[in-house]
Amino acid sequence: MESAYTPDLDYHTALALLEWQVELGADETILETPVNRYEVQPEKPAAVAAVRPGIPPPPVAQPKIDPVQVARQMAAGAGDLVALRGAMAAYEHCELKRGAKSLVFSDGNPAARVMIIGEAPGRDEDREGRPFVGKAGQLLDRMLGAIGMDRRADDPVQAVYISNVLPWRPPQNRDPKPEEIQMLLPFLRRHVELVQPDLVVLMGNISCQAGLGKRGITRLRGQWTEAYGKPAIPMFHPAYLLRSPHAKREAWADLLSLKSRLGG
């Protein structure tokens, strides 16, 4: 390779060339170590932002909480009905809890052969902390009495056990949202597992949606199916019967089907 050195370069020309290079930004002639321009340089670590006094560091992203998974874990850890009620009371991921007065857990005899699952508490239920205590509850008691059953009975053959899909009253008695049903469903499944009824009654559309994954009570009612691993029959909700007295004929047929299934 031909040397770039020119021995006959005069002083003034060399000085002019040096000044020209300085103007271009050259500030030194050589480095302490040779530089390989073809070598891949390692990436520099990202600079850590300095924390200034009095200024908090940026927030650290928290892992997203799955309310359904939390409910599954809490429900699975409940070994009896008392523990299940305590787990539901400690559950903090349902906004309905914030506006409700009471946790409406259950009523009746947990040793009963029949477990009735309603939809959600209303105003009267929220006030008293028990399911089906308003006008719809009074009608339910009369319906059960017509086939010789009573929520206050000690005999498991005559007794019933009552709960709801949701333990807290939705505002203005609106229908529960799908995400509210999903996050509370693990508690309901565990409820049925602990009670171990022979038969389940799904009262109303919301109860059918939770237990069967579908709605349409006028089409579903009276047809025996399976929910929560138990034989189940959908029925009209008593509140619907108060608004639609003409449907009481079908409700009576469903009650007789329930009595027949119990063997009496």
Rank of each mutant, 00 (worst) to 15 (best):
D154H: 12
V48R: 14
V70W: 11
R142Q: 11
W168K: 10
E119W: 02
I181M: 05
V82Y: 13
H246T: 09
P131R: 00
A46W: 04
R169P: 01
L81Y: 09
N173R: 14
G54D: 05
P167Q: 07
A210H: 08
V82K: 15
L184Y: 04
Q73V: 02
L194M: 08
I55L: 14
S244A: 09
C94K: 00
I147A: 04
V114D: 00
D154V: 13
K44S: 13
W224R: 09
R113M: 00
A49T: 11
E2M: 03
P42Y: 00
R127A: 15
A112V: 03
R127P: 05
G204K: 01
E179L: 04
A76N: 06
Q21L: 15
Q138H: 10
G122A: 15
P59S: 08
M115V: 10
L24R: 12
L9H: 11
R113K: 09
A90V: 06
D126T: 02
L184N: 09
A146Y: 03
P178A: 06
V114F: 00
Q21Y: 12
A61V: 15
Q209H: 02
L258H: 01
D80F: 13
R123Q: 13
K135N: 08
V201H: 09
E128V: 12
L144N: 01
I117H: 06
G86H: 05
I147V: 11
P34R: 11
V48I: 12
V157W: 00
P110A: 04
G99H: 11
L241H: 02
G122W: 12
R189K: 12
I233H: 07
